[in-house]
Design a protein around this nucleic acid. Structure first.
Length: 284
DNA sequence: GATGAGCGA
């Protein structure tokens, strides 16, 4: 002990060959300088006794004690820890700094930002929307006549395609030049049901449900790509939180591969959940 | 249990 007192390090381990019964509780000695020396003994699996001496500096901290937690600390240990003394055992438990959750310091500001954003959005919504085809209060692209009529002052959609082949998609017509990626290049070699029933070529698309929120698109790609060429993986996520919503779409180049994957992956366990796979239906 | 997002006025 006197040897220990002169040391500057706070913890050390040393073997002890003594053949006496080991104390089951830590031996705590209060030192004059306000520190405490805690000596614990334990038996290692190979029969060696380990004596651990720790010298700690006590700081007075006012702590809010959760009574349920405090009470649990006195429960008898069970399982592999059965019979061990109270408190963390150094051979199985490492005690680390308590991690405290702190909301962002400027959370209020960011909340304000958001409401600003919402306001802007609302303003946009309130702004006058007038369909360029029928002058109704909807977007031109949403016009019920967009397939049959061109916006006022413009040539028909089909003719526009011929006149301006560089605009990747004025097809489907309807005014706005923007065409979302998945609708571009329609009229290519892919569409079997160009009659207009399918918004997207979903003939070889599987809907995967019961997907854990920890799953990523790559995980799904890894699973499905062994059945054939996966052309697209879409994992539905909440746009606000970024959390996976629990379902996904996986498209194959070949419908037969999709069929096989559907049969094989349905019921496959990913994470803690069991995947459910079926052919996708047209989205609403 | 859930059938994808995207622009624009």
């Amino acid at each position: 002990m006197s040897k220990v007192a002169g040391r500057t390090d706070w913890a050390e381990e040393e073997d002890d060959e003594q053949n006496v019964a080991l104390p089951t509780h830590p031996q705590i000695t209060k030192n004059k300088d306000g520190t405490e020396t805690i000596v614990t003994y334990m038996m290692r699996e190979d029969g060696k006794k380990i004596k651990t001496t720790r010298r700690i500096k006590k700081t007075v901290v006012k702590t809010v004690v959760n009574h349920a937690v405090a009470e649990r600390k006195h429960w008898a240990k069970f399982g592999q820890e059965a019979g061990k003394p109270a408190g963390p055992q150094t051979d199985t438990t490492s005690v680390a700094e308590n991690i405290v959750f702190r909301p962002q310091a400027n959370w209020k500001a960011s909340a304000d930002d958001k409401s600003e954003h919402e306001k802007k959005k609302a303003n946009l919504k309130d702004a006058k929307i007038k369909c360029r085809i029928c002058s109704g209060d909807h977007w031109t692209t949403k016009c019920p006549f967009k397939d049959t009529m061109a916006p006022e002052g413009e040539v028909g959609a089909g003719a526009a395609d011929l006149d301006e082949p560089e605009t990747a998609g004025a097809l489907g017509g309807g005014g706005s030049s923007y065409v979302p990626p998945h609708l571009r290049n329609r009229g290519g070699a892919t569409g079997e049901k160009m009659g207009g029933k399918y918004e997207r070529d979903d003939l070889a698309t599987l809907r995967v449900t019961n997907v854990s929120e920890f799953t990523e698109e790559q995980d799904l790609r890894d699973i499905f790509s062994r059945f054939g060429h996966v052309t697209r993986v879409f994992l539905a996520k909440d746009r606000e939180t970024g959390r996976a919503k629990g379902f996904a779409f996986v498209s194959f180049a070949d419908r037969d591969d999709a069929q096989m994957a559907c049969a094989k992956v349905d019921g496959y366990g990913l994470g803690h959940l069991i995947l459910r796979v079926e052919f996708a239906k047209k989205s609403t």
